[in-house]
Amino acid sequence: MTLLDFARGPALSIAFAVFLIGVLWRLFSLVLLPKASDNSPARADSGSAFGQGLRGFWRHMWPADPYLKSSVFALVNGYAFHLGLAIVVFGLAQHIQFIKDVFGISWPGLPTGVITLAAIVTLASLVGALVRRLTNPVLKLISTGNDYITWLVTVLPVITGIMTINHLWLRYETLLALHILSFALMLVWFPFGKLMHAFLVFLTRSRTGVVYGRRGVKI
């Protein structure tokens, strides 16, 4: 069995199994938790909980004015990273092929040049995020292993992906194997680290919106 055979077969299978078990375990254990009962009456003009949730989610797409100045780097860098990554993940024909193979849905891909550009922006924003984490005293103080591991498992597929698509330094089969393995590593880490925010962001933001709405807090 070559490295590529291992990556395309057992590595992906193990990684997907860990990912699915971990994510579902965390999500179900969270949503099925008993709720603390709130005995206070809701504000009369608070509207539906669904609307509050949506508003809460939307409001947190942008920082509140007092924090805008101090978080401008995180804002711009964060958007650059997420948009770049989305273009790469959902725009590259090979990724679409993978998604089609697993989920049965597909859409047209983007040219490799566009993908490469987006990938470089993504990589640059990841480097920027790390530099900021290491240089900002407060951020550095509150950073844990989780932050660094999450950064590492995110940057590895980006680097190996750029190398694979441009055939840099190693043979294509080795590059493709490393890329798939780095993706598998990300899947394994996903449920246990900060990457889980990809699912939890919907719960946390909308829950905050509901709580604020009920209390009549203007957001």
């Binding site: 997907f16 199994a17 990912f19 699915l20 078990i21 971990g22 994510v23 579902l24 375990w25 965390r26 999500l27 179900f28 254990s29 969270l30 949503v31 099925l32 938790l33 008993p34």
Partner: peptide, 15 residues
Amino acid sequence: GAVAAGVAAGAASAL
């Protein structure tokens, strides 16, 4: 299998 195991683990933890 993974979906079933994940849901079961989550439900058990919530219980």
